[in-house]
Design a protein around this nucleic acid. Structure first.
Lengths: 192, 192
DNA sequence: CTGTAAATTCAGAAAATTCTGAAATTTGAG
DNA sequence: CTCAAATTTCAGAATTTTCTGAATTTACAG
């Protein structure tokens, strides 16, 4: 690996983590190299830095592009393609979540819905469906939360996340202020 | 695989998803079988249902136990061990997040902090550090949010998630109500 | 203690994934 | 069109991961 020590340490760790998340180590390393690069890199730059074969880099980049995680650009008067990652790390995370949702969460929700439609033939299946219903409900809660929160501009999103659970107190306060005598107001999805 | 069709479909899908998340397919299937089971199962029950070797099940259960994802129990007058998953799916997700954080996020944060302490030797390293700083900041934001929100009781957590981005509006309202003439109040971590 | 059922370990087999080099294809300048 | 640089493809090699059966260990009833 032909990188300054600091970069190498990051690239190695990132590759390792990638492989724990179902991403091939080399693909993770390619991403890491692009992420910390000062300028867009061409495939041969990556070959040089990681010391893997050209074809491996080609396949890795193809994979990363299919995830929308890297962009390629033509440089005027140069036939090569140059690759880079977005500067905005929030944009990167949004893409990552979006793609994983599309590939993993959505098919899982379909599967769960389909199995929940079936008439259970045995008590065993009936019980399994009850568990699947719990799982479906939880995944829906989380994906709906994400779908909603994902619409916020980054600055707002940061504000919201920074608050953490403090919003609960803020909402309690708000509820108290707007409490209608004779009618309970609760912090639910029905609220404004 | 010796399971009713509905259960088999779920177990297969779950194993498949597991393998996309860095979990061995069979371990995912073992978990799925336990998750939908009506009663705790012993290792041989799992062997029978999945049609894999006894030793494979033994290793898979060990793995799941190291993740705190299954519990085992002795049945009076029976030498075998019986395994199950918690009934509360929220508890399951909390464990899952906790364990992944411990194994993946925490080491990544350490790595980032360590590399950010180093004096950059080249402009290339200096730029890499800037990127690492962004990544560190984002991961801290997310983990702090989780650390905070994770303390809430499940019911409160559900309320919070159900609200989604609506809290932002609620907070704007609150801010407006408490706006001190002559001083701007913003919805940041400094609040409340 | 003895015998037996259950659980674990682990070396090697089997399977799956990743990687490479050679060949084929694409691209664009001249 | 021609040529050469860049890129992609893909069959098989290399590597890694997963799985199994046999041997070992553990646990406990009698």
């Amino acid at each position: 690996m032909n990188l300054p020590p600091l970069c190498e340490a990051f690239v190695l760790h990132f590759g390792e983590m990638g492989s724990r998340w179902g991403i091939n180590r080399t693909v993770g390393q390619i991403y890491a190299v692009l992420f910390i690069a000062e300028h867009p890199l061409c495939a041969d730059d990556i070959v040089e830095r990681l010391g893997v074969s050209r074809s491996n880099v080609s396949m890795g980049l193809k994979e990363l592009q299919s995830w929308n995680l890297v962009r390629h650009r033509q440089v005027q008067g140069d036939r090569r393609e140059f690759f880079s990652t977005p500067d905005d790390i929030y944009a990167i995370v949004r893409t990552l979540v979006e793609e994983r949702k599309k590939r993993e969460i959505d098919p899982t929700l379909s599967m769960l819905r389909e199995l929940l439609m079936q008439a259970p033939g045995t008590p065993e299946e009936r019980h399994a469906q009850a568990r699947l219903r719990d799982m479906h409900e939880l995944i829906e809660l989380l994906t709906n939360w994400y779908a909603d929160v994902q619409k916020l501009e980054t600055e707002r999103l940061i504000q919201l996340l920074s608050l953490g659970s403090k919003v609960v107190k803020a909402l309690e306060l708000k509820d108290r202020l707007f409490a209608v005598p004779g009618g309970k107001t609760r912090a639910t999805g029905q609220n404004n």
